[in-house]
Design a protein around this nucleic acid. Structure first.
Lengths: 123, 123, 123, 123
DNA sequence: GTGGTCTAGACCACC
DNA sequence: GTGGTCTAGACCACT
């Protein structure tokens, strides 16, 4: 379901978070569907439940999932959220990029960072 | 001192903000030095003082200048706000880019936005 | 909805900002819900739309709301911006306080400022 | 000259930074006076020169000292800097405190943090 | 003189 | 309809 790379620079919880987000965005997990429980996913990936917990919390913060206490974690209903979130993020992206360009960063340099992030982070 | 382009997509206050930031980062305005007063710069650029005020406010939030009531606005003391700020911004940049990539944005698309920002308009 | 005190030392836009933030944090305005339009809230409180605008702008910077051009301003989706934001602010708080204490401020003095902020005026 | 506490939660470089700042603010090191070299202070305190270096950099960022390449690090000339810096910091302090109070922090809680920071960080 | 706030009213772009 | 920008001009408090 999710691939982990321990040689990766990115922390494990971030890899879990990204993996799940990918599944959610691509529709592999449908709105309303329950995500695997923290403990089951932990044993499945052979990592600490705390790490899974942290990823779930981050995803909830981002609006992709919601948690019902004692019932589990579920994929967020409205996929419209994505569009709104994307627009809001793009606005922030532009603002930050604008300032970085003045601080000596070239757009090529920033472009590079993007490409690195795309390649599943195996770098 | 600062050039304004009214045909530009970017709002005037942002052009002022960028222009001043450039002067600050490049050392054309030295740490501790007083920036032109809101009113004088306004008449100088033939725009409304409110617009200058807004730019100064943003620069203060960003940490490039500080302001003393009744005395004026001054370039920040610390010699390397730049590096500190750049590191913090890059972190945010990575986080936002990572989520945008999963929200369906391609890195080519984001790269495109960067290039546009380098030249002139924000559109 | 929001009470304004014109005799207050705090500027009006800050009172609006605080009032809305309180409603957002306490859940009186739910995530995703639309806030009143700039103009409607302005007439409602009998103040200028520009003042409301400024408050909305600040809240967006703080992460409590996001805005869609031509559609309106909405409460941020993520359920716990609060916790995230509080942790970040506490870190900044500690850093600033530490330096202030060395700059000759006593903790009693800073404590005093806090109490003043709790009740009404900023003075 | 400076006391270090290894059981302290605060990192060593921060303790060095605070210790030196205290000496500077209290006038034990006068404006223009040379601070001990990175290496000599390092051997004196029996810690890594990198740690000292980091503290010096932080102090320069804060405006308390300046560095002449190859000559050493010196206490900043104008003690007026302190007042301006203090005012700027107080403004930030008020703003952050204001938001924290809305996020569920009580002023008693924040006051506590201040007191802890005062007691030489031995907690 | 300085910055900071507020108003009234205009115009634009987007939905 | 919505938010976003800008102007003109006023008033305040601080130095």
């Amino acid at each position: 379901m999710i691939e982990l790379h321990y040689r990766d620079a990115r922390p494990v919880y971030e890899q879990v978070q990204d993996g799940l987000r990918q599944l959610l965005v691509r529709g592999a997990i449908l709105p309303g569907e329950r995500l695997p429980s923290v403990r089951s996913l932990a044993t499945n990936l052979s990592i600490n439940p705390n790490t899974i917990q942290r990823a779930y919390e981050a995803l909830e913060r981002e609006g992709y999932v919601y948690t019902l206490l004692g019932k589990g974690t579920f994929a967020a209903e409205r996929s419209d959220v994505k569009d709104e979130r994307r627009d809001a993020l793009l606005k922030q992206y532009d603002e930050i990029a604008r300032e970085l360009l003045f601080l000596g960063c070239t757009w090529e340099m920033l472009s590079e960072r993007l490409k690195e992030g795309t390649s599943d982070g195996k770098a």
